[in-house]
């Protein structure tokens, strides 16, 4: 049985057995959960189909959040990407960005999503995976399998650092999601287990210290757009690792640093809506608009 206490454990075991991390994890989890690999695979396949459906829902023109503060971002970006043949980022990345926005928007409008690892960061993994599936012709089976790699990396991050904004800031939510997605992308592109770990380390290092400062305490501003930066970092980290650029700081040490940084962050920057963008004059005005008064007064 795997312990999921370090990513080096996953890399070592996968390399020793000559399998992908996803294969190792699927086998291990089916033993741990006393079920068959097929049953777990099918469960993950449902998660992927929900992700693809939330992209659809979130790209509708009339998508609007419950508070009314946000809406339509996925549709705007998709339309722009189509009109401009991908704008500055190019067609593939621009469309992937629109998908991350769409899923995060779907979440904000009380649509159905898969927390991956959280609701606030739910756009990153689908933004990456649905794009490889729809635009690059990747096999659905490989995509679903790569989600076991993403999940296993997430388990280590959760234990070693955190996946909760209230505990570790946004680095724990969008940071973790990007790191998980980066590892999955590397595996899908045929990278080695050790390159998966490098991509994870690079993504974590790129988001260390990111604060959780939701305006009005809602999972909208800046969360929806942070799903985009997380997605872009996932792709760039995966490409770096695939290019053979190694993480200079080993991944498990990055996770330990992430935990210490999270602990050092003041409470005002950990989902309390008392610091960062939430505490700006405009952020406070929005809070007043949605709830009638700000939280200090109630």
């Amino acid at each position: 049985m795997l312990k999921y206490e370090s990513i080096s454990e996953l890399v070592r075991e996968a390399e020793a057995r000559g399998v992908k991390i996803s294969e190792l994890v699927l086998q291990d989890q089916s033993e741990a959960m006393e079920t068959t690999p097929l049953e777990l695979y099918e469960k993950m396949e449902i998660d992927f189909s929900v992700m693809a459906a939330s992209v659809e829902v979130g790209q509708r023109k009339d998508q609007k959040s419950m508070s009314g503060l946000t809406g339509g971002e996925g549709w705007k970006m998709k339309t722009y990407a189509e009109k401009t043949n991908g704008g500055l980022c190019g067609p593939f990345l621009a469309k992937a960005i629109s998908r991350a926005l769409a899923v995060a928007g779907c979440n904000a409008s009380m649509g159905r999503i898969v927390a991956a690892p959280t609701a606030g960061s739910c756009g990153i993994l689908p933004g990456c995976l649905v794009s490889l599936w729809e635009d690059q012709g990747f096999d659905q089976k490989d995509i679903v399998m790569s989600m076991f790699t993403a999940g296993a990396f997430g388990m280590v991050i959760a234990g070693r650092a955190s996946i909760a904004g209230a505990q570790g800031g946004c680095q724990a939510e969008c940071g973790s999601a990007a790191a998980m997605a980066a590892a999955a992308l590397v595996e899908l592109m045929g990278g080695t287990p050790s390159q998966c770990a490098d991509a994870c380390a690079i993504a974590i290092a790129n988001q260390l210290g990111l604060v959780c400062d939701p305006v009005a305490g809602l999972v909208e501003i800046p969360c929806i757009k942070r799903n985009v930066s997380g997605l872009v970092i996932a792709f760039s980290s995966a490409d770096l690792a695939l290019a053979g650029i190694e993480a200079k700081i080993p991944v498990d040490e990055c996770l330990d640093a992430m935990r210490r940084v999270g602990d050092a962050l003041p409470d005002s920057l950990k989902e309390t809506a008392k610091g960062g963008l939430a505490a700006t004059p405009t952020g406070l005005r929005m809070q007043k608009k949605v709830f009638g008064s700000n939280q200090e007064e109630t």
């Binding site: 993950m44 159905r112 989600m147 234990g159």
Partner: peptide, 21 residues
């Protein structure tokens, strides 16, 4: 903890604590 605690749950947004919980 298992892999579906990380990839999942399937839920209606926007917040795991304020909505799903």
């Amino acid at each position: 903890m298992n892999v579906f605690d990380i990839i999942g749950p399937v839920m209606i947004g926007p917040s795991s604590s304020h909505t799903a919980g």
